[in-house]
Simulated scan of single mutants.
Amino acid sequence: MNIEVAHKIKTLRTSKGLSQEQVADYLHVAQSTYARMENGETNSWVNYIQPICELFEIQPEELLKQDTIIVNQNQQGGNGAFIINQLSEKLIEQYELRLQEKDQYIKRLESLLDKKQL
């Protein structure tokens, strides 16, 4: 459970574009303490569940659920929400692989251009 919650907290933080230090400041803890929570090294997140949920605009149940978190990205309190689940991790892996392939393709094209210019 600790690892799942830690992963969700990290996902929520990155989806909001916040640094570990910003979240730690919000929770009034050291950045290293927050990093341990986010890495699943401690279960002290339990002591901060309410402020964590307030910061990320979720209900405590959503943080503790097994597979899905609903994150409200609309700062005005509207209903602009999206679902983060296990599929998002797979998509990220696929995009990272595609980006690597793109970089390799660009290098090949650059080397071909260099050969033509010589």
Rank of each mutant, 00 (worst) to 15 (best):
K10A: 12
A24K: 04
S88F: 04
L64D: 06
N39D: 01
V23T: 09
H7T: 14
N79Q: 07
F56V: 07
Q86L: 03
E101Q: 15
T42M: 11
L87G: 08
V71Q: 09
A81C: 14
I92N: 03
A81G: 06
N47C: 03
K90S: 05
P60K: 06
F82S: 11
N74H: 13
N43F: 09
G40W: 02
A24V: 04
I70N: 03
L27K: 06
E21T: 13
M1E: 12
D114L: 12
S32R: 14
Q22G: 07
W45E: 02
G40N: 06
Q50F: 10
N85L: 01
S88H: 10
Y26S: 02
D103F: 02
G17S: 10
I49P: 08
K115H: 04
E62N: 08
S44E: 09
M1F: 01
T14K: 14
Q75H: 06
F82C: 03
S19R: 11
E54P: 00
K90V: 11
E110C: 06
S19L: 10
L91K: 10
N72L: 02
F82M: 13
E54I: 02
L91W: 05
L118M: 06
M37S: 01
E38P: 00
V29G: 03
E93L: 08
Q94T: 11
L27T: 04
F82Y: 12
G80F: 11
F56Y: 14
K115N: 07
I106C: 09
E61I: 10
R108I: 11
E38Y: 06
L113W: 05
L113P: 02
N85K: 05
N72D: 14
Q94R: 14
N43H: 04
H7C: 05
Q50P: 01
Y95R: 14
Q73V: 15
T42A: 08
A6K: 01
R36L: 09
G78R: 02
Q100H: 11
Q76R: 11
N79K: 11
N79T: 12
A24G: 03
E62P: 07
N47V: 05
L109A: 01
Q50E: 13
S44W: 03
Q66R: 15
E61N: 10
E41W: 03
E38S: 08
S44T: 12
D67Q: 11
A6E: 08
L91S: 04
Q59A: 08
E54Y: 05
D103Q: 15
T11M: 13
K107D: 15
E101R: 15
R13W: 01
I84D: 07
D67Y: 10
K107G: 09
P51T: 07
K10I: 02
Q117C: 03
R98P: 06
N74R: 08
H28E: 12
D25C: 05
R108H: 12
R98C: 09
K8P: 00
W45N: 04
I70V: 14
D25K: 13
K116M: 11
E101K: 14
Q75R: 13
D67I: 00
I58A: 00
S15L: 10
